[in-house]
Design a binder for these strands. Structure first.
Lengths: 165, 165
DNA sequence: TCTTATTGGTTGCATGAGCAACGGTTTCTG
DNA sequence: CAGAAACCGTTGCTCATGCAACCAATAAGA
């Protein structure tokens, strides 16, 4: 896969090279890290990605509604709903109707759930650290800002034409 | 969501803040770009992500086996298999057994398939350009190298203990 | 050569995610 | 105050995806 010296007809078609294509590379990297991380929270705690995000969000904010979590984790509300149900069944989170607005429910970790979070969070952080250890502190900072810039821009591209209905 | 000034009990638990967590940010960004890009090749050409990757790979390399494509696109062979079947049904790619080794099949775009590729590739590239346009040329270069470093490292973390069985 | 191990690719199965339609609740408007 | 509209969350449906078992073909070893 190294050389690729014989030119052939590549000049005819526009020069789309998958390995250099940004969205593709981002996806590959995201998959790699997701899968590696999943080995921690799936294998060790039986959490799916959505479930992990719910736990992480509640660990961080104590009490949130499902809607908040969905927005925060960029997930569909149905995805969150199912993750919440399964977490509740396993006794990791508790739901309590909001008396002020009974459409929504306030979610929070149970002690058991918080136990998992507190055991999981350091492992997640150490994984992140290990992952980022190939970059200097400066590079890490920079990467962060580049990701943020791109994310903001991508969001604006997607929601481009979305005024009032 | 802006301030977050009240400290509360955040100090007790390890400081895992989802919005700052690298794997999470990578996933969000990858999803955003994937979805935006999918609007091009899904809405306009009815291609799934795997299908799009197959087409892109074949557009780039003319003739490859399914195995090559899987490795190249970081996909499961079953995923590739199904994408290939569907593309073949739609007359976009052709398969021909390799006479030298009849286990494998050589895949290539049909004229119709190449037509799609040639119409799609420039749009994909222009999307990429538009996406990356918030970054300077330098930043783009840098981002690329950071992604590569991280990807290599993540791969090495995953395949860490994988010697001989 | 005959047996055994590997390899490329397909398929059945179970899981997970998105969409859309729905029920129950609150808010807006006439 | 009544009806319409918006909103939160759930659920049925469909489809995509990963895994593992499997078939066919080749390579390796006795």
């Amino acid at each position: 896969m190294a050389s690729r010296s014989t030119a052939k007809k590549e000049a005819l078609t526009p020069h789309l090279v998958l390995e250099r294509f940004l969205p593709y590379r981002l996806n590959v990297l995201a998959s790699l890290t997701s899968n590696a991380l999943a080995q921690i929270y799936a294998d060790r705690f039986g959490l799916s990605i959505p479930a992990w995000r719910v736990v992480a969000t509640l660990g961080q904010y104590d009490v949130r509604t499902a809607r908040d979590i969905a927005a925060h984790g960029v997930m569909h509300k149905s995805t969150v709903s199912r993750a919440v149900s399964s977490l509740e069944e396993r006794g990791l989170i508790a739901r309590r109707p909001n008396e002020d607005d009974r459409r929504e429910e306030l979610l929070a970790l149970t002690p058991a759930g918080r136990g998992i979070y507190e055991s999981l969070a350091p492992q997640a952080l150490s994984f992140e650290e290990q992952l980022a250890s190939v970059l200097t502190a400066q590079e890490q900072e920079l990467l962060g800002s580049l990701i943020d810039k791109l994310s903001r821009h991508a969001r604006s591209l997607t929601h481009e034409g979305e005024g009032e209905p």
